[in-house]
Amino acid sequence: MLKKYNSENPNPNDIKLGARLKLARSLAGMSQEKLGSELKITFQQIQKYEKGTNRISASRLIDCARILNQPITFFYEIEEEAKSEQSQSWLDVVQSDHGLRVMKILGNASEAQKDKILRTARIIAEPG
């Protein structure tokens, strides 16, 4: 028997999809207000999508992908992430304030700069 979900008990997949929407919006440097305006909905509706309390229709998700310049598959990678604790911790890091800032820096860096950043991060992250 399928479990009943509602706004007080959202479906875990809706929560994950909302988190991906928030990540894509943050990576695009777009506010909830701006995304809502582009979609012709309120920023409160964007908040509900991002929290998973309201489901995102397929057509609305396609519009989000187009506006945020992401492939639609970006939003459906949640299945693979759910299979691995390590992937979930990766998603937590990327969605943090530091993670988002690093992603923006990497997005603006040349390949040579990305290599330097990666080498530096490996050195800093080495234990002891």
Rank of each mutant, 00 (worst) to 15 (best):
S31K: 12
S57R: 12
Q113C: 09
L2K: 06
K116E: 10
C64A: 15
L35C: 02
L118Q: 15
I124E: 04
N108H: 11
Q113I: 03
F43D: 12
K34Q: 09
K4Q: 03
Q47L: 08
F75D: 06
S110M: 09
L23D: 01
I72Q: 01
M30S: 06
N9R: 12
L23K: 08
I72Y: 08
N9M: 08
Q32H: 12
L68H: 02
K34C: 01
L39M: 10
A109D: 03
P71S: 10
K116P: 02
I123S: 10
S7Q: 10
Q86F: 12
V94L: 15
M103Q: 14
M1K: 06
E38Y: 12
G99H: 05
I78W: 00
R20W: 05
A58Q: 09
E85P: 06
C64H: 07
G18W: 05
L100N: 06
T53E: 08
I41P: 03
T42I: 14
A28K: 15
S57I: 14
I78S: 00
A125G: 00
A82I: 08
I72D: 03
I46S: 04
K4G: 02
E80I: 09
T53G: 02
K3D: 07
Q44F: 06
I117G: 03
R25H: 03
V94D: 09
D115L: 13
E38M: 09
W90Q: 13
A24E: 07
G36Y: 02
K4P: 00
R101Y: 09
L91Q: 13
S7V: 13
I62Y: 07
S57Y: 15
N13V: 14
A28Q: 12
E33W: 00
L27I: 12
H98R: 10
E80C: 00
F75I: 03
L27C: 10
N6H: 12
E85H: 06
K22F: 07
P12H: 01
G128W: 06
Y49I: 09
K16D: 11
T42C: 10
K51W: 00
T53W: 08
L61A: 07
A109T: 01
R119I: 04
A24V: 10
K83A: 09
R60P: 03
L68N: 04
L21E: 11
H98G: 05
N13W: 14
N11H: 13
N108P: 02
P127K: 11
P12L: 01
R66M: 10
N9D: 09
M30Q: 09
L118W: 15
A125K: 07
D97Q: 15
L61G: 02
K22R: 15
L17K: 01
S26W: 06
E8W: 02
M1F: 08
M103G: 04
S110N: 07
A65M: 09
T120L: 05
M1W: 05
T53K: 12
S7L: 07
D14I: 11
D14S: 11
A24W: 15
